[in-house]
Amino acid sequence: MQARPGTGLAPAPVRPARPLPQRVLRWLLAAVAVAGFIGCLRLADVDPVELAEGLPTMAGWIGQAFPPSTEGLSTLLVRAAETVAIAVVGTAFAVVLALPLCVLAARTTTPSGWVRLPVRLFLNGLRGVDAFVFALLFVAAVGLGPFAGVLGIALHTWGSMGKLFSESIEALPGGPLEAAELTGASRLKTSSYTLLPDVLPSISSIGLYLLEFNIRASTVLGVVGAGGIGQELKNSVDLLAFPRLATILIVILVMVTAVDQLSARLRKALA
């Protein structure tokens, strides 16, 4: 056998050509994908001409936005703090709600498949409805204000968190739990003692990640009247108050960046 030049290894086997039907199938699939994407462009009303015509107007707005207004900055900061508070409280509620359910939803810890399936469906349902949509409903139910936002964030995050927590429980090796079960101790004792220490770093990291995500999500809750800086954002857009809008966007950017940095550091420390 001839060695491959420079490697001293046997020649790499030649990849056999794919059979004809398979190649035809690939082209067909590609054609369907392209056609589907064109359909999506139509449905989404994508129109480059409109974008081009709108650009000068937007450029004008940016011009008007400078210098950003510092009037009422203290109110804005209070609203920003409210946004963070909505996310923190909503995420904390979600942790409390998700912890018991993730145990029921994880294959390794669930008492039975008959419990696991409905719990997973429930969590998926919560996850499928955005916090914004929940907030819209809660504004109608409990009235305008940040509490509606908290409830919206809490419900949606409950779903995501329960699912992610249960996946990290399932990813743990099962051996230590088996060893503990052989002592004849109850399920509550064996699973809390052997799984919790090893799963804690990953669930803390998931919690921080979702908190970070929720702070970004909370910035728009005010648009539906559920508190936070989004309310100011909407008012400024409605009044075309561009200098104030610029200030709001800067405040949001600073806030989100600061939280992302902090959370990234904490998660690194946990790893």
């Binding site: 060893a179 101790a185 004792k189 220490p197 804690l200």
Partner: peptide, 23 residues
């Protein structure tokens, strides 16, 4: 006693031995 030990990695030796007392 398992081939792969099956200890809880983030607990101390002592805390792992205490698993024997859980019942």
């Amino acid at each position: 006693v398992f081939q792969s030990y099956n200890l809880v990695r983030r607990l101390t030796a002592m805390q792992n031995v205490l698993v024997g007392r859980l019942a």
